[in-house]
C-alpha cells in the first residue's frame, strides 16, 4: 500500500498543475494581505489622521492572519476538488488505467491509495497556506499579537491550526463525494465541473434543509451530510437547542459519511469495465 501511495504522490507532484494551483492559492493569500493592509491604512488615516500602531496593531495582526488564511484555504479546497477529480478520471481519459490495473494490487488498494494521495494533497496545501498566511501577516502586520488568545482558549497560531483541521475534515467529505463522481466518469472536464457545481449546490441545499428543520422541528435533519459539512466547531454562530451539533457528533458523523461515500466509489470503481478506447 505504501508503494501505491508513494506512486500516486509522485505522479501528483510531477504535474505542473499541482504546483500552479497551490501557487495561485498563495498569491490570493498575498493579495488578501496586501488588500487588508491597504484598506486598513486608508481607513485609519481617514478617521484618525494618524498612522496605525500601538495596541490596536496587535489585534489587527490576529484578524489579518485569520482572513489571509481563510481566503487562501477557500481556493485550496476548490483546487483539491479539482485535483481529486483529475487523479482518477485522468487515468481513464488517457488510458493509463490499463497499466495500473494490470499490476498485482486489487482495485480496492489502487483506489484507496488515490484517496490517501488526494487527502494528503489537501493537508499539505492547507498547511502551506497556513505558513504563507503567517509569513504575509508578519510581513504586513508584524508577528506581535499572534500569541494572544483569540478564541476557545487558543492563540492565533493554534487557532489557525485548528482551522486547518476543520477545513481538512469538511473538505475530506467533499472529496469523498468527488470520488463517487470520478469513479464512474471518463471525462476530466465533466468530473471537475460536476464536483465544483456540487460544492455550490450543496450550500444552497443545506440552507433549505436548515429552514425545514427549524420550521417543521424535524431536528433529526441536523444529521444530514450537508449540515455536518456546514458546521464549524470554531464558529460562535451555531444552531442551539435540539438542532445543535457537538464536536464529537460532527466528527463521527463526517467520518461515517466519508466512509459511506468512499464505499460507493469503491463499488463503482471495482465493477467498472475498462472498455475499448
Amino acid at each position: 500500500m505504501f508503494n501505491l501511495f508513494r506512486n500516486e504522490w509522485r505522479k501528483l507532484w510531477a504535474k505542473k498543475s499541482s504546483w500552479i494551483l497551490l501557487l495561485i492559492a498563495a498569491v490570493i493569500s498575498g493579495l488578501t494581505a496586501w488588500g487588508a493592509k491597504a484598506l486598513n491604512t486608508s481607513f485609519t488615516v481617514g478617521t484618525n489622521g494618524a498612522a496605525t500602531g500601538g495596541s490596536t496593531g496587535a489585534i489587527k495582526a490576529a484578524d489579518a492572519f485569520s482572513s489571509i488564511f481563510s481566503s487562501g484555504a477557500a481556493f485550496v479546497v476548490i483546487f483539491a476538488i479539482v485535483m481529486t477529480a483529475i487523479i482518477i478520471t485522468e487515468e481513464f481519459a488517457k488510458n493509463t488505467i490499463k497499466i495500473l490495473l494490470t499490476r498485482p494490487y486489487s482495485r480496492h488498494a489502487i483506489l484507496f491509495s488515490k484517496l490517501l494521495a488526494s487527502f494528503a494533497y489537501l493537508v499539505v496545501s492547507l498547511l502551506t497556506i497556513y505558513v504563507v498566511a503567517a509569513l504575509f501577516t508578519g510581513a504586513f502586520f508584524g508577528f506581535g499579537g499572534l500569541d494572544k488568545v483569540v478564541g476557545h482558549g487558543m492563540n492565533s497560531w493554534l487557532y489557525g491550526l485548528a482551522d486547518v483541521g476543520v477545513n481538512v475534515l469538511s473538505s475530506m467529505f467533499y472529496l469523498s463525494m468527488v470520488f463517487v463522481l470520478a469513479a464512474g466518469m471518463r471525462s476530466q472536464g465533466l468530473a471537475i465541473t460536476f464536483s465544483i457545481l456540487m460544492q455550490l449546490v450543496l450550500g444552497i441545499f443545506s440552507g433549505l434543509l436548515d429552514v425545514l428543520m427549524t420550521t417543521k422541528k424535524w431536528y433529526w435533519i441536523k444529521w444530514n451530510p450537508f449540515n455536518l459539512m456546514a458546521y464549524n466547531p470554531l464558529s460562535s454562530s451555531q444552531a442551539t437547542g435540539a438542532a445543535a451539533l457537538n464536536v464529537w457528533g460532527w466528527l463521527i458523523g463526517l467520518v461515517i459519511y466519508i466512509a459511506i461515500f468512499y464505499l460507493i466509489a469503491d463499488y463503482i470503481f471495482n465493477r467498472r469495465d475498462v472498455s475499448l478506447s
Binding site: K15, K94, T96, I99, L276
Partner: peptide
C-alpha cells in the same frame, strides 16, 4: 492495445 504512459 496502444501502450499509454504518464506523458509528463
Amino acid at each position: 492495445e496502444a501502450p499509454e504512459f504518464y506523458n509528463y
